[in-house]
Design a binder for these strands. Sequence first.
DNA 1: ATGGTTGGCCCCCAA
Length: 268
Amino acid sequence: MTASLTIATWNINSVRLRQDLLSLLMADAAPDIICLQETKAPDLVFPPDLGERLGLPYVLKRGMKGYNGVAILSRLRLTLIETAPDWCSKSDCRHIAASIETGSNPLILHDFYVPAGGDVPDRDANPKYGHKLDFIAEATKYFEAHPPHRTILVGDLNIAPLENDVWNHRQLLDVVSHTPPETDGLNAWRAQGFVDAVRHFVPIDQKLYTWWSYRNRDWRVSNRGRRLDHIWVSRDLEPSLSTYRILVEARDWQRGSDHVPVVLTLKI
DNA sequence: ATGGTTGGCCCCCAA
């Protein structure tokens, strides 16, 4: 018997401010699991009944004051994976991993919030850019040493790897999120056993965005987007890929995030 | 070349 599993990932940009929008995501996409980034909420102030209200009672979260923060809300039972590395030894709440109880074989889920990397694409002038490249290199090494199986990796990876993942490839080559060291680094990470689940469905000559800056008068008119939010699956799950959605309309939700949810359904 | 907006928090930092 085949069951389906729907996973959404969303950089919510403050879970306390936008928690009500999660019911719109539930109504629209009915995910079994929601992975959040930039929750900006220490664990003690994470909305305590949020998962219950959404029908996703199993909640794992890793937050801190002011910045970062990730969380997983699930209809299926989760087990926290305690052995995941402390990336760049910073304890900065950019990753949480869980095993998902599916009824048959469990699945492994990684939720990442990769450093944005600041403005200047030079690791000497801008340590945040160096941190971003180091984070990606560490993640690449980790999955090289631990090849993924039955694994789903999601998150705001803060890199648009392909030419048509940005509104203007040539113009963004020296803009952090699309520089060659970042896109090469992300491709090397993904090559450690993952498939880009959304590009599995959409040819690389088609534009795809998941983020539009707040700093545009009308994001839909200028449409200067980037695809920063990703869902990857290990190669053994590629035959299970069923459908995907990018909820572009969420960019117009009342007081929305600058990112929109990405949703994937697998037949498991 | 620059500026534009947002959230969190202690007035400026990160995005």
